[in-house]
Design a protein around this nucleic acid. Structure first.
Ligand SMILES: Nc1ncnc2c1ncn2[C@@H]1O[C@H](COP(=O)(O)O)[C@@H](O)[C@H]1O
Ligand SMILES: [Zn+2]
Length: 231
DNA sequence: GTTCTAGAAC
DNA sequence: GTTCTAGAAC
């Protein structure tokens, strides 16, 4: 599979073709070998192997594991993930909301994340810590972001990255617990309707705004330069 | 989710 | 010419 990719890359570079055009040059043999070892479409959307990697584990107990985000979008960026036999399969934030014990579980995650922030964040970033979920998440299983709101990272590369943490697309842990204990409308209100993916995706198109002074910035490179002025 | 890059925007 | 975005492929 790797060799096929390399070959296609070479061909497309030599011929200045698009990847799809280069594919037309691949032999039957190569096509067959790629079919013989079918890769699950979702394999690159799974956190499972990282969760098992002790080198990137920050915290672990019977119910939860916390790992370093592989592509950190800020100086400190962890993921807190329910694991083990305690919970049913949890793929997205709606799955946890629907559990009878959702508030209890989320409060447990709050306690653990508070401890992780206290133990692992440098002092100057402790008060900048954010905890929460992407309302549509790409990776599975369900995971909560624990991130420092400096957002200074080479891995933060596009508008979606920014808006996924800096609009209501980001469901803060504290807001979620409060909502579940009070209004309980995460599936009803337009703002947070987790059943309406189209509405949630619109958050990605909102203009880029500084998270400190809220001034709009014309593009991502400008925004990244701007946030450095708040140091 | 990331990478790569064509084509738009400047 | 260079910077930036967005969409295809993985
Ligand atoms: N293999 C991986 N191991 C650890 N973190 C990852 C991996 N792949 C992606 N990520 C991070 O997982 C997060 C998934 O984001 P989301 O699914 O939108 O909540 C992102 O912050 C990615 O940087
Ligand atoms: Zn600002």
């Amino acid at each position: 599979m790797k060799r096929l990719q390399t070959n296609l890359e070479k061909k497309s570079k030599q011929l200045k073709l698009s990847a799809s055009a280069a594919k037309a040059f691949s032999s039957d043999e190569e096509v067959n070998s790629s079919l013989a070892t079918p890769k699950k479409f979702t394999s690159f959307l799974s956190l499972e192997s990282s969760m098992k990697d002790e080198k990137i584990q920050v915290f672990k107990n019977e119910k939860f594991v916390c790992i370093k985000d592989k592509y950190p979008k800020a100086k400190i960026h962890f993921l807190l993930i329910p694991h083990g036999d305690t919970f049913p399969k949890l793929l997205k934030v709606a799955d946890i909301i629907k559990l009878p014990k959702s508030v209890e579980i989320l409060k447990e995650m709050k306690d653990i994340s508070d401890k992780i922030i206290n133990d692992k964040f440098p002092d100057d970033l402790k008060k900048k810590a954010l905890c929460g979920f992407h309302s549509i998440q790409s990776m599975q299983p369900l995971h909560m972001h624990i991130i420092s709101s400096d957002f200074q990272s080479d891995c933060l590369k596009n508008k979606k990255h920014w808006n996924s943490f800096n609009t209501d697309y980001f469901i803060k842990l504290g807001d979620l617990i409060q909502n579940l204990e009070e209004e309980n409308d995460y599936f009803k209100s337009d703002k947070f309707n987790l059943n309406k993916q189209d509405l949630l995706k619109k958050y990605m198109d909102l203009p880029l705004k500084c998270n400190v002074c809220h001034v709009e910035q014309k593009n991502l490179p400008t925004l990244k330069r701007h946030i450095l002025t708040h140091k």
